[in-house]
Write a protein that binds this DNA or RNA. Structure first.
Length: 175
DNA sequence: CATATGATGGACT
DNA sequence: GTCCATCATATGG
């Protein structure tokens, strides 16, 4: 189980360290485990791709909340799963883009697909990852190589590599 | 294999 | 109406 301090750092650091961690989803008494294989970091006012850059609104205000909270929002008919990072009062978050299913089969190679497969609903929005029994994280000691690249699907991006994924993993949303 | 395009729905101007 | 942190399908090489 990860502690609050884990998320209380810069979004890009947390995004990198979340790779390889195990995301657990409890449904009807069964625990579906999946490895996080792809993430993206989002900042606040300085990030043109971030929802927070134009100030607060219904979705982005959660980015100023305390680290470890869950932020869910829709793009088209899909939902995005984010974790709040950084100190409280600073807008930043990490988007989970892809998972590798460990003890079940599902399509999770994309941010919209993985939330569908894990039945992650908007009811998780605003909850803290430390307090939930239906959704939590497990640590992992696996070693792997991290690749950095530009973010995907963003109209205005920073000239910084803020997308991170595990090298040679087959569940990355795009290669 | 690659790139292009349309469907989709919520939030905002 | 417009803007998207998407996806599945269609088309061409």
């Amino acid at each position: 189980m990860l502690k609050k301090n884990f998320f209380k750092r810069k979004a890009d650091i947390v995004a990198k360290e979340l790779l390889g961690k195990i995301l657990c989803r409890r449904i009807d008494g069964k625990v579906l485990k999946s490895k996080i294989v792809e993430t993206e970091a989002y900042f606040g006012e300085d990030d043109p791709a971030s929802r927070a850059c134009k100030g607060k609104n219904k979705i982005s205000e959660m980015m100023w909340e305390s680290p470890g909270k869950i932020l869910i929002y829709n793009v088209h008919k899909y939902k995005m799963l984010n974790f709040i990072t950084g100190k409280e009062g600073e807008a930043s978050a990490v988007l989970i883009r892809a998972l590798e299913p460990l003890n079940f089969k599902a399509r999770t190679s994309g941010p919209g697909l993985l939330t569908d497969s894990l039945k992650i609903e908007k009811t998780f929005h605003g909850e803290s990852i430390f307090e939930l029994k239906e959704l939590f994280l497990e640590n992992s000691n696996e070693e792997f190589e991290i690749i950095e690249s530009s973010r995907i699907g963003v109209s205005k991006d920073l000239p910084v590599k803020l997308r991170f994924y595990i090298k040679d993993n087959n569940f990355i949303s795009k290669k």
